[in-house]
Design a protein around this nucleic acid. Structure first.
Lengths: 209, 209
DNA sequence: AGAAACTGTAGTAAAAAAACTACAAGATCA
DNA sequence: TGATCTTGTAGTTTTTTTACTACAGTTTCT
Protein backbone atom coordinates (compact mmCIF):
# COMPACT_ATOMS: atom_id res chain seq x y z
CA UNK A 1 0.00 0.00 0.00
CA UNK A 2 2.23 2.75 -1.21
CA UNK A 3 1.47 6.38 -0.71
CA UNK A 4 2.91 8.45 -3.49
CA UNK A 5 2.64 12.22 -3.91
CA UNK A 6 2.95 13.75 -7.34
CA UNK A 7 3.77 17.42 -7.82
CA UNK A 8 3.63 18.92 -11.25
CA UNK A 9 1.88 21.94 -12.62
CA UNK A 10 0.63 20.13 -15.70
CA UNK A 11 -2.55 18.18 -15.07
CA UNK A 12 -1.73 15.97 -18.03
CA UNK A 13 1.55 14.91 -16.52
CA UNK A 14 -0.06 14.18 -13.19
CA UNK A 15 -2.75 12.15 -14.84
CA UNK A 16 -0.24 10.18 -16.91
CA UNK A 17 1.93 9.51 -13.96
CA UNK A 18 -0.99 8.44 -11.86
CA UNK A 19 -2.11 5.88 -14.43
CA UNK A 20 1.38 4.62 -14.84
CA UNK A 21 1.80 4.17 -11.11
CA UNK A 22 -1.59 2.53 -10.65
CA UNK A 23 -0.64 0.03 -13.28
CA UNK A 24 2.23 -1.07 -11.12
CA UNK A 25 0.64 -0.54 -7.75
CA UNK A 26 -3.11 -0.95 -8.21
CA UNK A 27 -3.89 -0.19 -4.61
CA UNK A 28 -1.56 2.74 -4.15
CA UNK A 29 -2.74 6.01 -2.71
CA UNK A 30 -1.78 8.78 -5.09
CA UNK A 31 -1.79 12.43 -4.06
CA UNK A 32 -1.42 15.36 -6.40
CA UNK A 33 -0.16 18.89 -6.04
CA UNK A 34 -0.06 21.48 -8.78
CA UNK A 35 2.23 23.93 -7.10
CA UNK A 36 4.86 24.13 -4.42
CA UNK A 37 2.56 25.41 -1.75
CA UNK A 38 0.06 22.64 -2.12
CA UNK A 39 2.90 20.18 -2.16
CA UNK A 40 4.24 21.42 1.14
CA UNK A 41 0.80 21.42 2.68
CA UNK A 42 0.08 17.87 1.62
CA UNK A 43 3.33 16.79 3.13
CA UNK A 44 2.45 18.45 6.39
CA UNK A 45 -1.04 16.95 6.49
CA UNK A 46 -0.27 13.42 5.55
CA UNK A 47 2.57 10.90 5.51
CA UNK A 48 3.92 9.74 2.19
CA UNK A 49 6.37 7.10 1.08
CA UNK A 50 7.70 8.89 -1.95
CA UNK A 51 7.35 12.29 -3.56
CA UNK A 52 7.78 12.78 -7.29
CA UNK A 53 8.26 16.42 -8.03
CA UNK A 54 8.77 18.33 -11.21
CA UNK A 55 11.55 20.83 -10.88
CA UNK A 56 10.07 23.51 -13.04
CA UNK A 57 6.85 24.44 -11.39
CA UNK A 58 5.75 28.07 -11.57
CA UNK A 59 8.26 30.36 -9.95
CA UNK A 60 11.40 28.24 -9.97
CA UNK A 61 10.00 26.51 -7.01
CA UNK A 62 11.11 22.95 -7.54
CA UNK A 63 14.45 23.36 -5.86
CA UNK A 64 13.00 25.62 -3.22
CA UNK A 65 10.33 23.12 -2.38
CA UNK A 66 12.94 20.41 -2.22
CA UNK A 67 15.02 22.18 0.36
CA UNK A 68 11.94 23.00 2.36
CA UNK A 69 10.90 19.37 2.32
CA UNK A 70 14.35 18.30 3.36
CA UNK A 71 14.08 20.51 6.38
CA UNK A 72 10.64 19.31 7.34
CA UNK A 73 10.97 15.66 6.51
CA UNK A 74 14.58 14.75 5.90
CA UNK A 75 13.85 11.11 5.35
CA UNK A 76 11.07 11.43 2.85
CA UNK A 77 12.54 10.49 -0.52
CA UNK A 78 11.97 13.06 -3.23
CA UNK A 79 12.43 12.13 -6.85
CA UNK A 80 12.97 15.14 -9.02
CA UNK A 81 11.64 15.06 -12.53
CA UNK A 82 12.71 17.41 -15.22
CA UNK A 83 12.11 18.05 -18.86
CA UNK A 84 15.74 18.86 -19.29
CA UNK A 85 18.33 16.27 -20.16
CA UNK A 86 20.52 14.92 -17.44
CA UNK A 87 22.90 17.77 -17.43
CA UNK A 88 24.70 19.55 -14.67
CA UNK A 89 21.47 20.46 -12.94
CA UNK A 90 21.04 16.87 -11.94
CA UNK A 91 24.03 17.29 -9.68
CA UNK A 92 22.65 20.39 -8.11
CA UNK A 93 19.40 18.64 -7.43
CA UNK A 94 21.13 15.71 -5.83
CA UNK A 95 23.22 18.06 -3.78
CA UNK A 96 20.05 19.64 -2.53
CA UNK A 97 18.98 16.28 -1.23
CA UNK A 98 16.91 14.69 -3.95
CA UNK A 99 16.74 10.93 -3.92
CA UNK A 100 17.04 10.76 -7.69
CA UNK A 101 16.76 12.66 -10.92
CA UNK A 102 14.43 11.62 -13.69
CA UNK A 103 15.44 13.32 -16.88
CA UNK A 104 13.48 13.66 -20.07
CA UNK A 105 14.64 10.35 -21.46
CA UNK A 106 13.23 8.52 -18.48
CA UNK A 107 10.92 5.69 -19.38
CA UNK A 108 8.21 3.85 -17.55
CA UNK A 109 10.47 1.19 -16.12
CA UNK A 110 12.89 3.74 -14.76
CA UNK A 111 10.21 5.36 -12.69
CA UNK A 112 9.13 2.12 -11.11
CA UNK A 113 12.72 1.16 -10.52
CA UNK A 114 13.42 4.55 -9.03
CA UNK A 115 10.54 4.23 -6.60
CA UNK A 116 11.72 0.83 -5.48
CA UNK A 117 15.21 2.11 -4.99
CA UNK A 118 14.42 5.24 -3.06
CA UNK A 119 11.96 3.47 -0.82
CA UNK A 120 14.85 1.50 0.52
CA UNK A 121 16.49 4.75 1.45
CA UNK A 122 18.92 4.50 -1.42
CA UNK A 123 19.50 6.96 -4.20
CA UNK A 124 18.38 6.28 -7.73
CA UNK A 125 21.26 7.18 -9.96
CA UNK A 126 21.31 6.50 -13.68
CA UNK A 127 24.63 5.50 -15.22
CA UNK A 128 24.87 8.83 -17.04
CA UNK A 129 24.47 10.74 -13.84
CA UNK A 130 26.82 8.44 -12.00
CA UNK A 131 29.50 9.38 -14.43
CA UNK A 132 28.86 13.06 -14.04
CA UNK A 133 28.95 12.61 -10.34
CA UNK A 134 32.31 10.94 -10.54
CA UNK A 135 33.69 13.70 -12.68
CA UNK A 136 32.30 16.38 -10.46
CA UNK A 137 33.78 14.66 -7.50
CA UNK A 138 37.15 14.42 -9.10
CA UNK A 139 37.14 18.05 -10.00
CA UNK A 140 35.88 18.93 -6.57
CA UNK A 141 33.40 21.02 -8.41
CA UNK A 142 31.29 21.48 -5.37
CA UNK A 143 34.01 23.35 -3.62
CA UNK A 144 35.00 25.55 -6.48
CA UNK A 145 31.64 26.58 -7.70
CA UNK A 146 32.93 29.69 -9.29
CA UNK A 147 35.25 27.81 -11.62
CA UNK A 148 32.28 26.80 -13.64
CA UNK A 149 31.69 30.38 -14.60
CA UNK A 150 32.79 31.82 -17.89
CA UNK A 151 35.05 34.87 -17.85
CA UNK A 152 32.28 37.32 -18.35
CA UNK A 153 30.16 35.59 -15.78
CA UNK A 154 32.99 35.68 -13.32
CA UNK A 155 33.52 39.39 -13.82
CA UNK A 156 29.88 40.01 -13.20
CA UNK A 157 29.91 37.68 -10.24
CA UNK A 158 32.71 39.58 -8.55
CA UNK A 159 31.06 42.90 -9.05
CA UNK A 160 27.69 41.70 -7.84
CA UNK A 161 29.34 40.15 -4.82
CA UNK A 162 30.89 43.44 -3.93
CA UNK A 163 27.58 45.20 -4.12
CA UNK A 164 27.53 46.75 -7.55
CA UNK A 165 24.12 47.16 -9.14
CA UNK A 166 23.38 45.48 -12.44
CA UNK A 167 23.12 48.87 -14.09
CA UNK A 168 26.50 49.98 -12.79
CA UNK A 169 28.09 46.86 -14.14
CA UNK A 170 26.44 47.28 -17.50
CA UNK A 171 27.76 50.76 -17.59
CA UNK A 172 31.27 49.83 -16.71
CA UNK A 173 31.50 47.04 -19.25
CA UNK A 174 29.53 48.96 -21.84
CA UNK A 175 27.00 46.19 -22.15
CA UNK A 176 23.25 46.35 -22.09
CA UNK A 177 21.61 46.05 -18.74
CA UNK A 178 19.71 43.02 -19.88
CA UNK A 179 22.89 41.29 -20.90
CA UNK A 180 24.37 41.75 -17.49
CA UNK A 181 21.10 40.63 -16.04
CA UNK A 182 21.32 37.43 -18.04
CA UNK A 183 24.82 36.82 -16.75
CA UNK A 184 23.53 37.30 -13.27
CA UNK A 185 20.84 34.69 -13.81
CA UNK A 186 23.36 32.25 -15.14
CA UNK A 187 25.75 32.85 -12.31
CA UNK A 188 23.05 32.25 -9.74
CA UNK A 189 21.86 29.22 -11.60
CA UNK A 190 25.30 27.72 -11.96
CA UNK A 191 26.24 28.37 -8.40
CA UNK A 192 22.92 27.19 -7.07
CA UNK A 193 22.33 30.42 -5.24
CA UNK A 194 19.42 32.75 -5.16
CA UNK A 195 20.45 36.18 -4.05
CA UNK A 196 23.30 38.59 -4.36
CA UNK A 197 23.86 38.19 -0.66
CA UNK A 198 24.70 34.55 -1.26
CA UNK A 199 27.28 35.65 -3.78
CA UNK A 200 28.73 38.11 -1.32
CA UNK A 201 28.99 35.46 1.35
CA UNK A 202 30.58 33.01 -1.02
CA UNK A 203 33.07 35.54 -2.31
CA UNK A 204 34.03 36.61 1.18
CA UNK A 205 34.48 33.04 2.27
CA UNK A 206 36.67 32.21 -0.69
CA UNK A 207 38.41 35.54 -0.37
CA UNK A 208 37.62 36.40 -3.96
CA UNK A 209 36.97 40.04 -3.14
CA UNK B 1 44.54 84.63 -3.50
CA UNK B 2 42.23 81.88 -2.41
CA UNK B 3 40.66 79.41 -4.79
CA UNK B 4 37.32 78.25 -3.49
CA UNK B 5 34.96 75.82 -5.19
CA UNK B 6 31.28 75.93 -4.36
CA UNK B 7 28.99 72.98 -5.08
CA UNK B 8 25.28 73.37 -4.64
CA UNK B 9 22.38 72.69 -6.91
CA UNK B 10 20.64 75.94 -6.09
CA UNK B 11 21.94 78.86 -8.10
CA UNK B 12 20.69 81.22 -5.42
CA UNK B 13 22.80 79.57 -2.77
CA UNK B 14 25.87 79.64 -4.97
CA UNK B 15 25.32 83.27 -5.73
CA UNK B 16 24.84 84.17 -2.10
CA UNK B 17 27.86 82.27 -1.03
CA UNK B 18 29.96 83.79 -3.75
CA UNK B 19 29.08 87.32 -2.66
CA UNK B 20 29.69 86.48 0.93
CA UNK B 21 33.10 85.08 0.15
CA UNK B 22 34.09 87.94 -2.12
CA UNK B 23 33.28 90.34 0.67
CA UNK B 24 35.92 88.69 2.78
CA UNK B 25 38.34 87.77 0.01
CA UNK B 26 37.86 90.33 -2.75
CA UNK B 27 40.43 88.75 -5.01
CA UNK B 28 39.43 85.15 -4.51
CA UNK B 29 38.81 82.84 -7.41
CA UNK B 30 35.42 81.26 -6.95
CA UNK B 31 34.34 78.17 -8.89
CA UNK B 32 30.85 76.78 -9.02
CA UNK B 33 29.38 73.38 -9.64
CA UNK B 34 25.70 72.54 -9.68
CA UNK B 35 26.00 68.79 -9.44
CA UNK B 36 28.37 66.12 -8.29
CA UNK B 37 29.77 65.38 -11.70
CA UNK B 38 30.71 68.93 -12.45
CA UNK B 39 32.21 69.16 -9.02
CA UNK B 40 34.45 66.20 -9.62
CA UNK B 41 35.45 67.47 -13.02
CA UNK B 42 36.39 70.88 -11.71
CA UNK B 43 38.53 69.27 -9.09
CA UNK B 44 40.31 67.23 -11.69
CA UNK B 45 40.89 70.21 -13.97
CA UNK B 46 42.03 72.73 -11.45
CA UNK B 47 43.58 73.00 -8.01
CA UNK B 48 41.52 74.48 -5.21
CA UNK B 49 42.19 75.47 -1.65
CA UNK B 50 38.78 74.67 -0.23
CA UNK B 51 35.60 73.03 -1.42
CA UNK B 52 32.24 73.96 0.05
CA UNK B 53 29.72 71.34 -0.86
CA UNK B 54 26.06 70.95 -0.13
CA UNK B 55 25.25 67.47 0.97
CA UNK B 56 21.87 67.20 -0.64
CA UNK B 57 22.49 67.63 -4.31
CA UNK B 58 20.33 65.64 -6.71
CA UNK B 59 20.72 61.93 -6.22
CA UNK B 60 22.09 61.71 -2.69
CA UNK B 61 25.37 62.61 -4.15
CA UNK B 62 26.90 64.81 -1.50
CA UNK B 63 28.38 61.98 0.50
CA UNK B 64 29.28 60.06 -2.61
CA UNK B 65 31.09 63.03 -4.04
CA UNK B 66 32.90 63.50 -0.76
CA UNK B 67 34.30 60.03 -0.71
CA UNK B 68 35.30 60.31 -4.33
CA UNK B 69 37.09 63.56 -3.62
CA UNK B 70 38.81 62.01 -0.64
CA UNK B 71 40.18 59.32 -2.91
CA UNK B 72 41.37 61.71 -5.58
CA UNK B 73 42.63 64.52 -3.44
CA UNK B 74 42.89 63.43 0.17
CA UNK B 75 44.29 66.71 1.33
CA UNK B 76 41.77 69.03 -0.24
CA UNK B 77 39.55 70.26 2.59
CA UNK B 78 35.86 69.80 1.97
CA UNK B 79 33.35 71.70 4.04
CA UNK B 80 29.96 70.07 3.96
CA UNK B 81 26.93 72.30 4.12
CA UNK B 82 23.49 71.08 4.92
CA UNK B 83 20.04 72.39 5.43
CA UNK B 84 19.58 70.00 8.26
CA UNK B 85 20.45 70.87 11.81
CA UNK B 86 23.62 69.54 13.31
CA UNK B 87 22.30 66.15 14.05
CA UNK B 88 23.88 62.74 13.84
CA UNK B 89 24.54 63.11 10.14
CA UNK B 90 27.26 65.54 10.93
CA UNK B 91 29.22 62.70 12.43
CA UNK B 92 28.76 60.56 9.40
CA UNK B 93 29.99 63.34 7.22
CA UNK B 94 33.05 63.87 9.34
CA UNK B 95 33.71 60.19 9.34
CA UNK B 96 33.63 60.26 5.58
CA UNK B 97 36.41 62.78 5.66
CA UNK B 98 34.79 66.19 5.60
CA UNK B 99 36.80 69.01 7.09
CA UNK B 100 33.74 70.49 8.74
CA UNK B 101 29.99 70.56 8.84
CA UNK B 102 28.02 73.72 8.32
CA UNK B 103 24.50 73.22 9.55
CA UNK B 104 21.45 75.35 8.90
CA UNK B 105 22.15 77.69 11.76
CA UNK B 106 25.52 78.58 10.36
CA UNK B 107 26.07 82.29 9.97
CA UNK B 108 28.35 84.39 7.88
CA UNK B 109 31.17 84.51 10.40
CA UNK B 110 31.17 80.75 10.82
CA UNK B 111 31.83 80.22 7.16
CA UNK B 112 34.78 82.52 7.12
CA UNK B 113 36.09 81.03 10.31
CA UNK B 114 35.61 77.56 8.90
CA UNK B 115 37.59 78.40 5.79
CA UNK B 116 40.44 79.78 7.84
CA UNK B 117 40.48 76.73 10.01
CA UNK B 118 40.38 74.09 7.32
CA UNK B 119 43.00 75.82 5.25
CA UNK B 120 45.42 75.12 8.02
CA UNK B 121 44.60 71.48 7.66
CA UNK B 122 42.52 71.48 10.79
CA UNK B 123 38.91 70.50 11.19
CA UNK B 124 36.21 73.04 11.80
CA UNK B 125 34.09 71.71 14.61
CA UNK B 126 31.33 73.70 16.25
CA UNK B 127 30.83 73.21 19.95
CA UNK B 128 27.57 71.40 19.36
CA UNK B 129 29.23 68.93 17.11
CA UNK B 130 32.19 68.59 19.37
CA UNK B 131 29.88 67.41 22.08
CA UNK B 132 28.21 64.93 19.84
CA UNK B 133 31.58 63.70 18.78
CA UNK B 134 32.61 63.16 22.35
CA UNK B 135 29.48 61.25 23.08
CA UNK B 136 29.79 59.17 19.99
CA UNK B 137 33.33 58.40 20.90
CA UNK B 138 32.42 57.37 24.37
CA UNK B 139 29.71 55.09 23.11
CA UNK B 140 32.02 53.78 20.48
CA UNK B 141 29.17 54.42 18.18
CA UNK B 142 31.33 54.04 15.14
CA UNK B 143 32.01 50.46 15.98
CA UNK B 144 28.48 49.51 16.83
CA UNK B 145 26.68 51.07 13.98
CA UNK B 146 23.78 48.75 14.26
CA UNK B 147 22.94 49.86 17.77
CA UNK B 148 21.56 53.04 16.39
CA UNK B 149 18.83 51.13 14.65
CA UNK B 150 15.36 50.88 16.04
CA UNK B 151 13.90 47.43 16.64
CA UNK B 152 12.02 47.28 13.40
CA UNK B 153 14.98 48.61 11.52
CA UNK B 154 17.21 46.02 13.05
CA UNK B 155 14.88 43.20 12.11
CA UNK B 156 14.84 44.43 8.57
CA UNK B 157 18.58 44.90 8.60
CA UNK B 158 19.20 41.31 9.61
CA UNK B 159 16.93 39.95 6.97
CA UNK B 160 18.37 42.13 4.27
CA UNK B 161 21.85 41.13 5.31
CA UNK B 162 20.97 37.51 4.93
CA UNK B 163 19.69 38.06 1.45
CA UNK B 164 15.96 38.40 1.86
CA UNK B 165 14.21 40.61 -0.66
CA UNK B 166 12.22 43.59 0.50
CA UNK B 167 9.05 41.92 -0.67
CA UNK B 168 9.77 38.74 1.27
CA UNK B 169 10.35 40.73 4.42
CA UNK B 170 7.17 42.71 3.93
CA UNK B 171 5.35 39.48 3.56
CA UNK B 172 6.79 37.90 6.63
CA UNK B 173 6.10 40.88 8.87
CA UNK B 174 2.77 41.60 7.22
CA UNK B 175 3.81 45.13 6.40
CA UNK B 176 3.52 47.00 3.17
CA UNK B 177 6.44 46.72 0.83
CA UNK B 178 6.94 50.44 0.90
CA UNK B 179 7.16 50.42 4.65
CA UNK B 180 9.91 47.88 4.60
CA UNK B 181 11.54 49.85 1.87
CA UNK B 182 11.52 52.93 4.05
CA UNK B 183 13.16 50.97 6.83
CA UNK B 184 15.78 49.85 4.41
CA UNK B 185 16.52 53.43 3.42
CA UNK B 186 16.83 54.43 7.02
CA UNK B 187 19.08 51.54 7.85
CA UNK B 188 21.35 52.34 4.94
CA UNK B 189 21.32 55.99 5.87
CA UNK B 190 22.03 55.40 9.52
CA UNK B 191 24.77 52.94 8.87
CA UNK B 192 26.31 55.01 6.13
CA UNK B 193 26.13 52.20 3.66
CA UNK B 194 24.78 52.00 0.20
CA UNK B 195 24.00 48.46 -0.76
CA UNK B 196 22.66 45.29 0.71
CA UNK B 197 26.06 43.76 0.12
CA UNK B 198 27.51 46.24 2.59
CA UNK B 199 24.96 45.11 5.13
CA UNK B 200 25.87 41.51 4.51
CA UNK B 201 29.54 42.21 4.98
CA UNK B 202 28.91 44.15 8.14
CA UNK B 203 26.64 41.50 9.58
CA UNK B 204 29.11 38.76 8.82
CA UNK B 205 31.93 40.69 10.35
CA UNK B 206 29.99 41.34 13.53
CA UNK B 207 28.64 37.82 13.45
CA UNK B 208 25.08 39.09 13.58
CA UNK B 209 23.83 36.44 11.21
C1' DA C 1 6.84 73.02 28.16
C1' DG C 2 8.09 73.37 23.42
C1' DA C 3 10.95 72.45 19.57
C1' DA C 4 13.30 69.07 17.17
C1' DA C 5 14.17 64.34 16.23
C1' DC C 6 12.98 59.53 15.93
C1' DT C 7 9.81 55.73 14.84
C1' DG C 8 6.30 53.08 12.64
C1' DT C 9 3.67 53.11 8.84
C1' DA C 10 2.28 53.68 3.83
C1' DG C 11 1.02 55.83 -0.96
C1' DT C 12 2.59 57.32 -5.57
C1' DA C 13 5.47 57.58 -9.28
C1' DA C 14 9.74 56.63 -11.45
C1' DA C 15 13.60 53.57 -12.04
C1' DA C 16 15.71 49.20 -11.88
C1' DA C 17 15.90 44.40 -11.91
C1' DA C 18 14.22 39.80 -13.07
C1' DA C 19 12.14 36.32 -15.88
C1' DC C 20 11.72 34.75 -20.31
C1' DT C 21 13.01 34.36 -24.74
C1' DA C 22 16.04 34.33 -28.65
C1' DC C 23 19.94 33.64 -31.54
C1' DA C 24 24.47 32.96 -33.63
C1' DA C 25 29.16 31.28 -33.07
C1' DG C 26 32.20 28.31 -30.84
C1' DA C 27 33.12 23.98 -27.97
C1' DT C 28 32.32 19.33 -27.06
C1' DC C 29 30.84 14.94 -26.90
C1' DA C 30 29.25 10.72 -28.87
C1' DT D 1 29.97 14.78 -38.18
C1' DG D 2 25.87 15.84 -36.36
C1' DA D 3 23.46 16.85 -32.00
C1' DT D 4 23.84 19.13 -27.86
C1' DC D 5 26.00 22.65 -24.75
C1' DT D 6 28.00 26.81 -23.68
C1' DT D 7 28.79 31.64 -24.22
C1' DG D 8 28.10 36.38 -25.39
C1' DT D 9 24.66 39.36 -26.33
C1' DA D 10 20.06 41.80 -26.07
C1' DG D 11 14.80 42.78 -26.53
C1' DT D 12 10.14 42.55 -24.09
C1' DT D 13 7.26 42.22 -20.37
C1' DT D 14 6.38 41.68 -15.57
C1' DT D 15 7.74 42.35 -10.91
C1' DT D 16 10.51 44.71 -7.53
C1' DT D 17 12.85 48.38 -5.75
C1' DT D 18 13.76 53.06 -4.97
C1' DA D 19 13.05 57.94 -4.13
C1' DC D 20 9.97 61.10 -2.29
C1' DT D 21 6.64 62.42 0.64
C1' DA D 22 3.56 62.38 4.53
C1' DC D 23 1.88 61.95 9.08
C1' DA D 24 0.80 60.89 13.83
C1' DG D 25 2.68 59.24 18.21
C1' DT D 26 7.13 59.00 21.16
C1' DT D 27 11.19 60.36 22.87
C1' DT D 28 14.67 63.57 23.72
C1' DC D 29 17.03 67.64 24.43
C1' DT D 30 16.85 72.85 25.99
Amino acid sequence: MKRILIADDHAIVRRGLRLLLLEEYPSAEIGEASDAETLINKIIQHEWDVVICDISMPGRSGLDALSQIKQMAPKLPVLIMSMYPEDQYALRVLKAGAAGYLGKETIHDDIIKAIHTVELGKKFITPTIAEKLAKAFEEDQSDQLHEKLSDREFDVFKMLASGKAVSEIANQFALSVTTVSTYRSRVLEKMGMKSNADLTRYALEKKLI
